[in-house]
């Protein structure tokens, strides 16, 4: 299906580009989706959807800095997998994986990132490394926002929360990352 969709692309340059992605990253993307979804069929479906979406937005994808392309793709996998998990949870009438707390009230109690603390340039590298230790949920929302450059509305739709909820999650994710970085530094 993916190969057919790529082959049907009219622009040769774009088709070459997508062929490259398919050849190089399909397996690793599928592996990631499988690990997240614990279901091969769902994982294949997610990857297929991602490729169809990438083909549709190939102009944007081609403008991604090639050095950052792999992480862009993985962010897309995480995003779609999370979305799938959410749908699955809703379908099974289980508790939502994502909490629905839209208020920003809790921020007041968060003290991980005091307001008078400013992040130094050298800490950026450390926080970036700390991100890989973040729970999948938090990382996904950061990736959606900053790598896939999705709007709050789009992220909300994918994760099944409101745009305000997205902002909340972003706050929390950023602070968690900072906390992990600090924890690591203290150790």
């Amino acid at each position: 299906m993916i190969a057919m969709a790529i082959a049907a692309m009219e622009d040769d340059y774009a088709r070459d580009f997508m062929t490259g992605i398919y050849i190089k990253y399909y397996d690793i993307m599928l592996g990631k989706a499988k690990a997240m979804l614990e279901n091969e069929e769902d994982a294949e479906e997610v990857i297929q959807d991602i490729f169809l979406d990438l083909i549709e937005r190939v102009g944007t994808v081609m403008s991604v800095d090639p050095k950052k392309l792999p992480s862009y793709l993985m962010a897309a996998v995480r995003n779609s997998s999370m979305s799938k998990i959410r749908k699955r949870m809703v379908r099974r009438e289980h508790t939502l994986l994502i909490d629905e707390d839209d208020s920003l009230e809790w921020i007041k109690d968060e003290s991980a990132l005091p307001e008078d603390v400013y992040i130094k340039n050298e800490e950026i590298d450390e926080i970036a490394k700390a991100l890989s230790l973040l729970p999948e949920n938090d990382r996904t929302v950061l990736e959606d926002k900053y790598i896939l450059e999705m709007s709050d509305e789009e992220i909300g739709k994918a994760l099944g929360i409101t745009p305000a909820g997205v902002r909340t999650r972003l706050f929390r994710a950023r602070r968690k990352a900072y906390a992990i970085m600090k924890e690591g530094a203290e150790k």
């Binding site: 190089k24 990253y25 690793i28 050095k67 950052k68 392309l69 792999p70 992480s71 862009y72 793709l73 993985m74 990132l113 307001e115 400013y118 992040i119 950026i124 590298d125 926080i127 970036a128 490394k129 991100l131 890989s132 950061l142 990736e143 926002k145 900053y146 790598i147 902002r167 706050f171 950023r174 990352a177």
Partner: peptide, 28 residues
């Protein structure tokens, strides 16, 4: 505060993206 964090995290995520991509490339 939010704007500041947003600005910082843009940089953080860029760096993260590079590190992550490198890792994926090596794995690949």
């Amino acid at each position: 505060r939010e704007e500041y964090e947003d600005f910082v995290f843009k940089k953080v995520m860029l760096r993260y993206s590079e590190l992550e991509s490198e890792k994926i490339r090596q794995e690949n």
